[in-house]
Design a protein around this nucleic acid. Structure first.
Length: 555
DNA sequence: CTGGGGACGGGGCCC
DNA sequence: GGGGCCCCGTCCCCA
C-alpha cells in the first residue's frame, strides 16, 4: 500500500514537473519570440532609416553638383550618364572602374594654372562626399564606406554635414570623416583615396605616368592618376615617373551591399599603398576621342562599366570643365596632338587586382581628382551641348579603330577609322578625332580675344578675322571684301543674278537658301511668333521684332 | 517679305 | 599624318 502511495506520489510530482517545465518552455519561447520580433522590427527600421538617409545624401549631392556646374559653367559641356556618371573633362566613372581621363595635350597645360576655380566665387572646388554605409558597424571598424568627397573650399554644405551627422547619430559610425582640406591638415596616416587625390591637387605632388609609347612620343604630359595599388600592365606604355610620399588608401565598399557583404572580404578592403606600386592611373585625358572614350581603350567603358553595376552608388557628376580654360592660339599645338591611341586599356586591365578596391566605391568628382595638369586640360565646349548617355552604353562605342575595309562612306581612300558614335569612316585618325567633336561637343580651341571656342583650329583661325578685320576675299566686280571665300562666292550672285534656290510652291527664285527657307514659311502659314502687344503673328522672329519696334516701341 | 551679309559647323581635298 | 584650305550649308541679323 505504501509502495502504491509512493508511486502515485511520484507520478503526481512528475506530472507537476512536466507541467511546470512546459509552462517554463512556453514562457521562454514567448519571450524569445517577442524579443526577436522587436529585434527584427528595430533592425528593419534601422535599415530603412539608413537607406533613407543614404538616398537623401545622394540626392543632395547630386543636386549640389548639378547646380554648381550650371552656375559656374553655363557653356560647359555636360555629359550625364545616369548610371555611369561620366562627366566630360574629368574622370569617368565607368561603373566600378574609376578612370580619370583628361586630354593628353601639350602646351595648353600649364602646371601653374589654377585648379578648379569657381569662376564666380573664386573658390576652388574640391568636392568631398562621404556616403556612409548602412551597416558600418556590422562591417567592422575597418570597414569601408562608399566615399564620394565633395567639398568646396570655403564653402560648407550644411545639409551635407547635417546628413552625415545624422547618419552618425543613427548609429552609423562614419569611417571616414569629412575633411576640410583647405583648413585642416591631414595628420592621419590613413587618408581616403579621395583625400589622397585632393592632396595631390593642393600639394605639389602629382602622380604622373609618363607615356613612353614611341608612337605617341609627342605627348609628354599624359598624366595618369587613379587606380591605386594597380601596377601598369607589363606592356603598358605608361610609367610612373613622379610619386611622392607613401599613401595609405582607404577604399570603400558600397554601402548598399554592406549587409550582404559583411562576410565578403573581397569587397571590404583597406589597401595599404606601397609607393612603389602605386601607379595611380588617372589617365589625364578627357577628350572623347581619346582615352576612355577612345575606341582604343574601349574596355574602359565597355567592360569596366559593367562589372559593378548595381553595386555602386553613382552620383552623377557634371563636369565643371575649363576651370583653366584651354587657350590655344592658332599656332599652338592642339591638345589632341600626341595622344595615345594605344594601350589605354593596358593600364585599365590592371583593375583585376583592384576589383575589390577602388573599382567599387570611389566616385570622386572630377574636381577633387584632377591634378593641376588635368585641370587645365579640360576640353571645353562653347555651346552648352548636352551629351548623351549613349556614349557609354555599348561596346559599339569602341568602334573607332582600325578596321580593315571598314569604310562606310564612299571614298577612294580606305577609311579605316570609324566614328564611335555614327560609324562614319575616316581615312586617318586625326580626322575621326575631329569629327567626333561633332558628337562630343568638344571645342578645344579658344579664342584669346573673345573666349569663343571652336572644335577646329582652322575655324578658330577663321574666326579671328572677326577681331583682326581681315577680309582677304574681294569681289572683282565691286571691290567689296569678305572674310570668307564662301561669302564672296555667295555675294557674287548679286552680280551674276544667279538664283539657284527656287520655291516649289510659287516658283520664286532666291539667291540664298536661307531666303528661300524663310519664304517657304509664307506658304506654310507658319507664324509661331506672336506680338505680345497686339497679338499679330509672324513667321520669323525678326519680323516680330521689327513689328514691335515700329508699332510698339513706346510700350 | 525679300535681299544680302556675317559668322559658324562640318566634310573633303591638297600639300 | 597633320595642317590648312575650299566648299557647302545653315543660322542669324539687318536693310
Amino acid at each position: 500500500m505504501a509502495n502504491c502511495d509512493g508511486v502515485v506520489f511520484h507520478t503526481q510530482i512528475a506530472s507537476i514537473m512536466e507541467v511546470l517545465a512546459n509552462a517554463a518552455v512556453t514562457e521562454i519561447c514567448k519571450l524569445v519570440d517577442d524579443d526577436y520580433a522587436v529585434f527584427r522590427l528595430e533592425m528593419s527600421q534601422s535599415q530603412k532609416e539608413n537607406r533613407a538617409l543614404r538616398r537623401k545624401l545622394q540626392l543632395l549631392e547630386l543636386k549640389v553638383s548639378r547646380e554648381r556646374v550650371l552656375a559656374s559653367r553655363p557653356n560647359s559641356v555636360k555629359i550625364f550618364d545616369g548610371y555611369r556618371g561620366m562627366a566630360r573633362g574629368e574622370e569617368h566613372f565607368t561603373g566600378g572602374h574609376r578612370n580619370f581621363v583628361k586630354p593628353a595635350g601639350l602646351k595648353p597645360w600649364r602646371d601653374d594654372q589654377p585648379i578648379a576655380i569657381n569662376e564666380e566665387t573664386g573658390t576652388s572646388t574640391q568636392h568631398v562626399i562621404v556616403i556612409e554605409p548602412a551597416d558600418a558597424e556590422a562591417v567592422g571598424p575597418g570597414a569601408s564606406s562608399l566615399v564620394k568627397q565633395e567639398k568646396t573650399e570655403g564653402e560648407e554644405d550644411p545639409q551635407h554635414s547635417r546628413d552625415i551627422q545624422t547618419g552618425a547619430a543613427a548609429g552609423v559610425a562614419p569611417p571616414v570623416a569629412v575633411v576640410d582640406l583647405a583648413t585642416t591638415p591631414q595628420p592621419r596616416t590613413r587618408p581616403s583615396i579621395t583625400e589622397v587625390i585632393l592632396k595631390s591637387e593642393t600639394d605639389t605632388e602629382t602622380h604622373r605616368l609618363l607615356h613612353t609609347g614611341s608612337d605617341h612620343g609627342s605627348d609628354p604630359e599624359r598624366l595618369l592618376l587613379g587606380r591605386l595599388g594597380c601596377s601598369p600592365a607589363p606592356d603598358s606604355k605608361y610609367l610612373l615617373y613622379e610619386n611622392s610620399s607613401p599613401r595609405t588608401v582607404h577604399s570603400h565598399q558600397d554601402s548598399s551591399d554592406a549587409l550582404e557583404t559583411v562576410n565578403d572580404l573581397s569587397r571590404s578592403y583597406m589597401t595599404e599603398m606601397d609607393p612603389g606600386i602605386m601607379p595611380l592611373v588617372l589617365e589625364t585625358q578627357t577628350d572623347l576621342s581619346r582615352g576612355d572614350w577612345n575606341p582604343y581603350s574601349s574596355r574602359v567603358y565597355s567592360e569596366g562599366c559593367l562589372d559593378k553595376k548595381g553595386e555602386v552608388i553613382v552620383i552623377d557628376e557634371v563636369k565643371v570643365e575649363g576651370d583653366a580654360p584651354l587657350t590655344c592660339n592658332a599656332d599652338e599645338t592642339p591638345i589632341w596632338k600626341g595622344y595615345s591611341q594605344g594601350n589605354t586599356s593596358d593600364f585599365l586591365d590592371c583593375r583585376d587586382g583592384l576589383e575589390t578596391s577602388l573599382d567599387v566605391a570611389i566616385h570622386s568628382p572630377s574636381h577633387a581628382l584632377r591634378d593641376p595638369v588635368s585641370t587645365s586640360m579640360a576640353p571645353s565646349d562653347s555651346h552648352g551641348r548636352v551629351f548623351f548617355d549613349q556614349v557609354f552604353n555599348s561596346n559599339d562605342r569602341a568602334r573607332v579603330q582600325t578596321q580593315g575595309g571598314g569604310a562606310t562612306s564612299g571614298n577612294s581612300k580606305e577609311k579605316r577609322f570609324l566614328c564611335m558614335f555614327c560609324n562614319k569612316g575616316f581615312s586617318c585618325l586625326q580626322k575621326v578625332e575631329i569629327h567626333q567633336r561633332v558628337h562630343t561637343g568638344e571645342n578645344p580651341f579658344n579664342c584669346t580675344q573673345c573666349e569663343k571656342r571652336f572644335s577646329r583650329q582652322d575655324h578658330l583661325k577663321r574666326h579671328q578675322r572677326v577681331h583682326t578685320g581681315e577680309k582677304p576675299f574681294s569681289c572683282p566686280q565691286c571691290e567689296k571684301r569678305f572674310s570668307q571665300a564662301g561669302d564672296l562666292k555667295r555675294h557674287q550672285r548679286v552680280h551674276t543674278g544667279e538664283k539657284p534656290f527656287s520655291c516649289t510652291q510659287c516658283h520664286m527664285r532666291f539667291a540664298l537658301a536661307g531666303n528661300l527657307k524663310m519664304h517657304l514659311k509664307v506658304h506654310e502659314g507658319e507664324r509661331p511668333f506672336t506680338c505680345m502687344h497686339c497679338g499679330k503673328k509672324f513667321s520669323e522672329r525678326s519680323y516680330l521684332r521689327t513689328h514691335q519696334q515700329k508699332k510698339h516701341s513706346s510700350v
